Simulated assay, not measured.
Amino acid sequence: MTEPTFAPRVFSGIKPSGGLTLGNYLGAIKRFVEMADGEFETIYCVVDLHAITVWQDPAELTQATREVAAGYIASGIDPEKSILFNQAAVSGHAELAWIFNCVARVGWMNRMTQFKEKAGKNAEAVSLGLYAYPALMAADILLYHATHVPVGEDQKQHVELTRDIAAKFNHDYRTDFFPLTEPVIEGPAMRVMNLRDGTKKMSKSGESDMERINMLDDADTIAKKFRKARTDPAPIPGKVKELADRPEARNLVEIYAALSGTSAEAVLAEHEGAGWGAFKPALADLAVARLGPISDEMRRLLDDPAEIDRTLARGAERARQVAAPILAKTYEIVGLVRG
């Protein structure tokens, strides 16, 4: 039997919990823009249903959803070329998630390292949604028969779970309906780290605003944060392997490489032997040059939230057109009667 062929299609999304950071831009949005100019049909989502796995202030969630959408557009995602929408506007995500809850095994969920990290010692008190959200993530992807998902290294396990769910569904129902989606993990700064602790991911929910670069930070704030970023006493080395035990130094070098569109090796070749007192201002200047126009455009877009909402609504209608036949066929395969 010949293997089914699926049109090359990308799906990915960002959770609207807090503001966008440099980590969101380098680890996700920048690659979304690049993939939109390639061979793929691209579908990009604001995954607001994922945000409510922990309680969100409703007004702040609305604002954060619009900020992510503005960040997408300001960074170069064309909502006429790519499908851009928010997850809650397409009910198929929740519908397919329930079917996948019934396909996925509890043992698979118990192995999800992100749940263990987020729940910590309080696992009995967290929401069922936080435990089960990898099945919703699988539904997000497979509702569109997405063949590729650009993700950070920390999300690779969830794409592997998506493949497991697709494979089990196909096996249980003797079909080849869902593709085995491939994660796309490549390039520098795929996981941007905390500016004060290079062993932790840059996060919107960190304790101090100095830990992160926000996409709406002004030039002075960006310069101040990079100037105060933690490093170590040693100068910049000539080889990447010499950064192995220097997490803060490695993080700044990789951020520079990602912003400049080059490699960590090239950055080290240019700055070998320099001190951080010279490197950090150069990094700040580069970040301001790259992020400034995006931040300005985000502010302009956010001044007209009604237009953002209209853009998301148009994208949701296009998303539903792609998702509807896939969801309908899934119901048929499972044997569920729909009127």
Rank of each mutant, 00 (worst) to 15 (best):
R66V: 00
I326T: 09
K201I: 06
R174I: 02
Q157C: 13
Q56S: 06
A74L: 09
A234W: 05
I141G: 03
A258W: 09
A287S: 14
A223K: 12
H271L: 08
A125K: 15
M193V: 04
A266E: 15
V33G: 06
K201C: 02
A7K: 08
Y173R: 05
G27D: 01
D296G: 10
K239G: 04
P150F: 09
E153S: 08
L283T: 15
A316S: 13
A138E: 12
A316R: 07
V159D: 05
E39R: 08
V47P: 04
K204D: 03
A146L: 10
A278P: 05
I165W: 11
T221V: 12
M202N: 02
A282C: 10
A264C: 15
E34S: 09
T65N: 01
L142P: 11
L259N: 04
K15W: 00
Y133S: 12
G38R: 06
S203E: 01
L302I: 14
L136E: 08
A223C: 07
A316D: 09
E317S: 14
F279P: 12
A166F: 09
A229I: 09
A51Y: 11
L84I: 13
K204E: 00
F226Y: 14
K118Y: 13
I29V: 11
G315Q: 12
D140V: 12
V334W: 07
A94W: 04
M35Q: 06
A328D: 15
V46N: 04
A319H: 02
I308K: 07
H158M: 09
I43G: 07
P134C: 09
N122G: 14
P235H: 06
R191Y: 02
A123C: 12
I185Y: 02
I77Y: 08
P293K: 00
I141E: 02
E60T: 11
L96A: 10
P183C: 05
H145A: 10
E186R: 15
C45K: 06
Y44M: 08
S17M: 06
L161E: 08
R338Y: 12
E254F: 15
V159W: 03
A306I: 07
A36Y: 03
A229N: 12
T330K: 08
L20P: 00
A319Y: 02
A219T: 00
L128N: 11
T21C: 05
L128C: 09
Q321K: 15
M215K: 01
D197W: 05
G129N: 13
F11Q: 04
R111S: 11
D220C: 02
V47E: 03
I222F: 06
A146N: 07
R290H: 05
S12A: 09
R320I: 07
H50L: 08
A282H: 11
I99D: 01
L20F: 05
G292K: 01
A135N: 13
I99V: 14
V151R: 04
P4F: 02
D218C: 06
Y173S: 09
Y331N: 11
L301H: 14
V337N: 09
M215W: 01
M1N: 11
R246P: 06
G38Y: 03
N110S: 12
T330S: 03
L336Y: 15
I308M: 14
G38F: 01
K224R: 14
I99Y: 04
A167P: 00
A69D: 10
Y256T: 14
S91R: 15
L22H: 03
L61I: 04
M35T: 01
V10R: 00
T53V: 11
R111C: 13
I185W: 01
A139C: 09
G92D: 08
D57A: 10
